[in-house]
Simulated assay, not measured.
Amino acid sequence: MGMRTVVAVAEGPVTRLGQVVLAGEVVDDEPIMPSTLRVMDQYVLSVVLEGEGTYRDAEGRKERLLPGAHTIVPPGVPHWYGTDPGRRWTELFVVFTGPLFDSVAELSGLTVAGPRYPRPVPSIEALRSVLRTPPRSQRAAEHQLFALVDWLHDAADSGGAPDGSAPDLSPEVAQGVSRLSDDLTGSVDLKAVAAESGLTYDTFRRRFTAEVGQTPSAFRSVRRLQAAATLLRLTDMTHREIARTLGFADEFHFSRRFRAHFGMPPRAYRAS
């Protein structure tokens, strides 16, 4: 069997803005879900990283969940999601509540239940960074809630198909997009990603560029810089720590690349 790993907090501090009630990650395992539709008093976000499953609700909606599916369920909506019996997936999830989220629900895509496939895929590492450390004070807990709202807003702004369905990518390219979006350390071998998709590198590069609009290398570079921007906004990580986390040679290399892409150095971006 796989391993169920909780990477964040359970019953985080209650603040005037709200609360992260539960967050964690199911790693290559069958999720523990009731067999019938359930109703939550809080918002739920589930992101499928690997594997497949199904979402259904009381309105008769039933959809397959593929890698990259971001499922939102508002409070009070009867729903069910999970894998087929005996099947596994890797899923990052967070349950949250409070007036802060209610106030931005429409702007942040929290009012409509069901899966969607944002493009470009918002940084999963940034979301993990927000959830990984349990807050040690009320102020830290409020900062965490603001950071989660910021991430949700980025995810809502990132687009995708108009009806929220999976983008029109071939399975091989979709797998490559997922792999390059989730591994932003810079150490991933593009030829290995192509091989995992069952294609030669030249074929993978040609099809990836045609379907995504960028070469695999350019896509990975932009995603790393977008993740760096998110970490600058959402965390107090130093430039050196961000550079190390995202696989840049050092903070000076990171700063040069960041400025070339965003038109300002990381320090100015963080202060803006």
Rank of each mutant, 00 (worst) to 15 (best):
H239P: 00
R119Q: 05
V121W: 12
L110T: 04
H239Q: 08
F219D: 07
Q175C: 04
T238Q: 03
V130M: 07
V130D: 01
V6Y: 00
V27S: 15
G53I: 02
A140H: 07
D168G: 06
A156T: 09
T97C: 09
H153I: 11
T97F: 03
F258T: 01
S123D: 02
A249L: 00
S35Y: 12
F258W: 04
A105M: 12
L232S: 01
L225C: 11
R206T: 01
G53K: 02
R224H: 06
R207Y: 11
Q226D: 09
R257I: 01
R139T: 10
A249C: 02
E52L: 10
G176I: 01
L145N: 07
V222G: 04
E251A: 00
L92N: 01
L152H: 10
D154E: 14
K62L: 11
F93H: 11
R224A: 06
G60W: 02
S46C: 10
A105Y: 15
T97A: 10
E241Y: 03
M33Q: 15
G53C: 05
L100T: 07
T235Q: 09
S197K: 04
Q42F: 13
V44N: 06
Q175F: 11
Q214Y: 06
E91H: 08
P75S: 14
E63V: 06
H79P: 02
L107P: 08
E241W: 03
T97K: 13
A23P: 08
T245I: 08
P120F: 14
P118L: 05
S158Y: 02
A218M: 03
T83S: 14
E142G: 12
V27Q: 15
G51N: 07
V212Q: 00
G213D: 00
R223Y: 05
A69T: 07
A194V: 04
V21G: 00
W151S: 13
V39L: 03
L169M: 01
G160Y: 06
A174M: 07
S137F: 08
E63Y: 13
M1K: 13
R267T: 03
A228I: 06
L37W: 15
A23G: 15
P134Y: 00
R220H: 15
V149F: 01
I242R: 05
G24H: 12
L49V: 03
A227M: 12
S181M: 14
H153C: 02
A243C: 00
S272D: 15
R257E: 05
Q214K: 11
P67T: 09
G68A: 14
A229D: 01
L100A: 13
E25I: 14
S103L: 09
E172C: 00
S123G: 10
A23H: 11
V44K: 08
G213M: 00
I72K: 09
G2S: 10
I72M: 08
R87H: 15
Y81I: 00
G86Q: 07
P135S: 10
D29I: 05
R16D: 14
W89V: 08
V26Y: 14
D189S: 06
R256C: 01
T230E: 12
G198N: 09
L199V: 08
L199N: 00
A105K: 10
E11C: 10
S103F: 04
V73Y: 02
D236G: 01
T111E: 11
F93M: 10
M1Y: 07
G2I: 12
